[in-house]
Design a protein around this nucleic acid. Structure first.
Length: 776
DNA sequence: CTAGGGTTAG
């Protein structure tokens, strides 16, 4: 029997049950009650609102909406409940769309929800309108509204507006400070975040855990390990280091400050690890070049049953990129496809990066065209990827596509574009991009761009202009720019300028081996042996040594890394036996042992050992033991890394020898496509000689057909006629060794050394591998 | 019957 009093009682009971069901997440209990209420209850706004609240908390925002739509009268509470329902299921757009249907006055609750939704969808316009409404309604000063507005301006990248709101707040409010720090960090405005963090330091006792995360993010961006350590100490004091958010932020901070071990320690003590903390520690490893450890952690994570997300895939793919581990990268790409993460922007970008760094620009392109959406990073990857691979025309074409797609080029874009211009010798275009277009899009040229321009001028043989350019643009203290000029001086045999440049560089006291090699070579060319002595002396003083060689290969799913004189590999005995066997075999067919070219003298008795323990040889012997007959062995080492650095980062003018060695290395480890691709990028003036390297390889392997094809293709449409090409190829067949035709082929390193000592050093290090492959 | 900010990628 329904009486008014009974109805009220029942309504109170129903509200209590709904709240309990919502707290327990018990959808069916609440639904059953709803069904009963429809038949017998007296419905008012409060009961309706409770139903909305219940459905929203159970994640059934669609049902909550049905209740809302069916209400005869609604109030601000109904609106707010529905909006927060949409917010918690991430449907911020739908939440904003509701505003048009609200037939009641918006209060501070609804407005802060609306402003928060605008922040989520990054809609400055809607957010500002809401702010205006709040000002008119006189509730803009309410703390919740004010903070939501402040956060909205930060998210929508209008820091000027945010600062205005921020300045209006009196006293210390953790929320406001946190939003400001994160806003500045997202925009990369470190000066701004320094100011805000400065204001927070005296208020540590008022920080909440989000403050720790924000300030740690600031330390990570600034690489401020001193402040970071202090924040860590404060977190320990308040037992916050075990909080998964704070812990992950600490891991990230240590990783970005180059402290991988500290990052690992923080991670290890975390009692609850989620996918973010796992990914953060993997990132720390990757950024500190501990790629194998990062990949191992990925497996550990899988073992723990924590599913990877798109960021995880991005990180492990970057580890693969660092290792040039094409097979792992491919497999991880397949996993990402299977788990549905492939379509994420970050995964696509990481895949492109991996393929590009592993030498397969075609695959990078395939990923690029199949990505559902791309951003400026994707375009940069494809442009710089093409430029890296010596495909400057394709790089320029991609750049023009980018412009017509309406994407705004960034700092990185112009590095790729200018280096492509340098490869193509497009001086005027280069200056147009530097002086006109970069201004138009608001990118301030940096050292990298100026260095590209130096390379461009050098490439065009305008060495004096290049020198002037260095001086005019105040990059005279940059060793890289001078190095670029110095190597060009050698190419163009301008030893007068070269000598001057060498003196300049010497004054800068560089600390990398490559520069000293160039310098000593330069002095040797002009017969200034006093200069060579000076270079050696400075090198010793600065403690510059040749870096130990590292090579790696993949057998099954494991990447094995070898260093020179490696003695720790568990299968070292087998490897040594195999290696001795191989060396005996190739000695029998006329191989004369060569020695690694180093700048330091090797004692006679150590020579044989150096030969034996050279890292590439170890990796090769290992691969041969473990790889089925006929399968391709992929062996990569620092040569590739150094080569790419010389070519792209330092913008060095490479000599024929560099290309030859690299192509030969690729060929000898079973990557003839890479060798061919590389040789296609050889500058015109060096082409015929570099081509000889690849043809020689074909000859060595008895691949006549391939050799002929390469000869035809590489010369096709260019200066020489077909018959000449074949003749050239055939002519090479008669030489026992390709390098036999010139004494200039010695590596730049040691030319002076060889001249003095008439020693047995040559650059034919790759030859034994060819022989090995011919045998096995 | 109602509310805010955070960690991982290039």
């Amino acid at each position: 029997m329904a009486s008014p009093c009974g109805a009220v009682l029942r309504r109170h009971a129903a509200v209590a049950v709904l709240r309990a069901a919502a707290a327990a997440g018990d959808l069916s209990k609440g639904k059953a009650l709803h069904a009963r209420l429809i038949t017998c209850a007296h419905f008012d706004i409060v009961l309706h609102n409770n139903l909305i609240s219940f459905y929203a908390k159970c994640g059934q925002v669609g049902l909550a909406r049905k209740v809302f739509d069916a209400m005869p009268f609604r109030n601000a509470v109904s609106g707010n409940l529905l909006m927060s329902g949409y917010a918690s299921s991430g449907r911020h757009k739908d939440s904003l769309a509701l505003l048009r249907f609200f037939d009641f006055v918006l209060n501070e609750y609804v407005l802060s929800a609306a402003v928060a939704a605008s922040a989520h969808v990054r809609s400055y316009d809607v957010g500002r309108q809401c702010h205006g409404y709040a000002v008119k309604a006189g509730i803009a000063e309410q703390p919740y509204v004010q903070n939501a507005v402040l956060h909205m301006y930060c998210q929508c990248a209008h820091m000027e507006d945010a600062v205005k709101v921020f300045d209006n707040i009196s006293g210390f409010d953790a929320f406001a400070f946190n939003s400001m720090v994160n806003g500045f960090l997202d925009r990369g405005q470190l000066d701004g975040s320094v100011r805000i963090v400065g204001g927070m330091i005296g208020e540590v006792e008022n920080w909440d855990e989000v403050s720790y995360v924000a300030v740690l993010g600031h330390c990570a961006s600034m690489k401020d390990l001193v402040l970071g350590g202090q924040v860590h100490a404060q977190a320990l004091k308040r037992r916050l280091e075990l909080n998964v958010f704070v812990g992950s932020a600490l891991v990230d901070m240590y990783g970005k400050c180059d402290r991988a071990r500290d990052a690992q320690y923080v991670f290890d003590v975390l009692p609850e690890k989620n996918v973010v903390s796992w990914t953060a520690v993997m990132t720390a490893y990757t950024q500190n070049e501990l790629y194998e450890d990062a990949l191992q952690l990925f497996l550990d994570m899988e073992m723990e049953g924590v599913p990877a997300n798109e960021f995880t895939y991005a990180v492990v793919l970057n580890s693969c990129a660092g290792l040039a581990a094409l097979r792992n990268g491919n497999a991880l790409g397949a996993c990402a496809l299977k788990t549905g993460h492939w379509t994420h922007l970050v995964v696509g970008n990481a895949l492109m990066n991996m393929y590009s760094k592993s030498g397969s620009i075609e695959d990078a392109w395939r990923v690029f065209v199949s990505m559902p959406l791309c951003d400026v990073v994707s375009w940069n990857l494809i442009i710089t990827g093409y430029a890296h691979h010596g495909l400057a025309r394709e790089a320029m074409e991609a750049f023009h596509c980018m412009l017509s797609a309406g994407e705004v080029p960034s700092y990185v874009t112009f590095i790729g574009v200018l280096s492509a211009c340098a490869q193509l010798g497009l001086v005027d275009e280069g200056f147009y991009y530097l002086n006109t277009m970069m201004k138009e899009v608001g990118v301030t040229p940096g050292k990298e761009h100026y260095t590209c321009m130096v390379g461009l001028l050098c490439r065009a043989g305008r060495l004096d202009e290049a020198e002037q350019f260095i001086v005019n643009n105040c990059i005279g203290t940059d060793v890289v720019a001078w190095r670029s000029l110095l190597s060009s001086c050698q190419v163009y045999r301008n030893y007068g300028l070269g000598h001057r440049v060498a003196e300049q560089i010497l004054q800068l006291k560089p600390n990398d081996i490559g520069t000293y090699v160039l310098l000593s070579n330069m002095y040797a060319k002009v017969n200034r042996w006093d200069g060579v002595v000076k270079v050696r002396k400075q090198m010793r003083e600065r403690g510059v040594r040749k870096e130990p060689g590292v090579s790696w290969t993949q057998v099954g799913s494991v990447v094995h890394v070898f260093t020179s004189e490696d003695k720790v590999h568990p299968q070292m005995d087998q490897i040594t036996v195999k290696l001795e066997e191989l060396i005996d075999q190739i000695k029998a067919i006329g191989y004369v042992p060569n020695f690694a070219v180093v700048l330091h003298d090797i004692e006679d008795e150590q020579k044989e050992e150096h030969l034996m323990y050279h890292s590439e040889k170890l990796a090769l012997a290992f691969s041969l033991i473990h790889t089925p007959k006929g399968e391709t062995i992929r062996l990569l080492d620092d040569c590739k890394k150094y080569f790419e650095q010389m070519r792209t980062m330092y913008k060095l003018k490479l000599t024929f020898t560099h290309y030859w060695c690299m192509a030969n290395l690729y060929g000898s480890v079973g990557l003839p496509e890479e060798a061919e691709g590389l040789l296609r990028s050889v500058p015109e003036d060096l082409k015929s000689r570099a081509l000889g390297g690849l043809l020689g390889l074909c000859r060595f392997r008895g691949e006549w057909g391939t050799g002929e094809q390469i000869a035809l293709r590489s010369f096709g449409g260019e200066s020489k006629g077909p018959s000449m090409q074949i003749q050239y190829f055939n002519g090479l067949l008669n030489d026992r060794l390709i390098l036999g035709n010139s004494e200039k082929e010695k590596t730049d390193d040691e030319e002076s050394e060889t001249r003095n000592k008439k020693s047995e050093y040559t650059d034919e290090q790759s030859k034994p591998y060819e022989a090995c492959l011919a045998f096995c």
